[in-house]
Amino acid sequence: MSTLRLEIVTPEAKTYSDDVDSVVIPGVEGEFGVLPQHVPLLTQLKPGELRVIKGGEEIRLAVGEGFVEVADDMVAVLTDMAIRESDIDESAAEDAMRRAEEAMKDESLSDEQSAAFQASIQKSVAQLRVKRRRSF
């Protein structure tokens, strides 16, 4: 069976690089799956959960904003955040989110501060969504 090369890169590091069977990606137009022989595609990525299927096993990652390029059995995911499910610290993410939300209520915030908090909330939400899934 043919496989698919998946590379997930963030500006900080190359997070994931392996041959996989398929991958399910949260795009702006909805979640979509990529199998080998997929047509070339370029689309935006939405913060959410990315699922990698390799040899019957499923790996979940929380991803941030970015975009995806699919070409020649190669999937390149460029995102500002990619964290494996096992590396997500649920309580830390919850804490971060609560702190950021509280800070957002403070109306004396300047534009740039609220932008930073918004980004932090978004990141925490994506992490929690991936982590919580299993328990449902």
């Binding site: 500006p11 795009g27 702006v28 137009e29 047509v39 070339p40 595609l41 370029l42 689309t43 935006q44 970015g66 975009f67 070409a71 020649d72 460029l78 500002d80």
Partner: peptide
């Protein structure tokens, strides 16, 4: 490197909005 030519490429939702999304990323980076 295999610069896959844009000819066969599909864009979702369309090329313009993808460009819109990518440009800020270039600036961030």
């Amino acid at each position: 490197e295999k610069t896959s030519s844009g000819a066969g490429m599909n864009f979702e939702p369309n090329a313009h909005s993808v460009l819109d999304a990518i440009m800020p990323f270039y600036v961030h980076f």
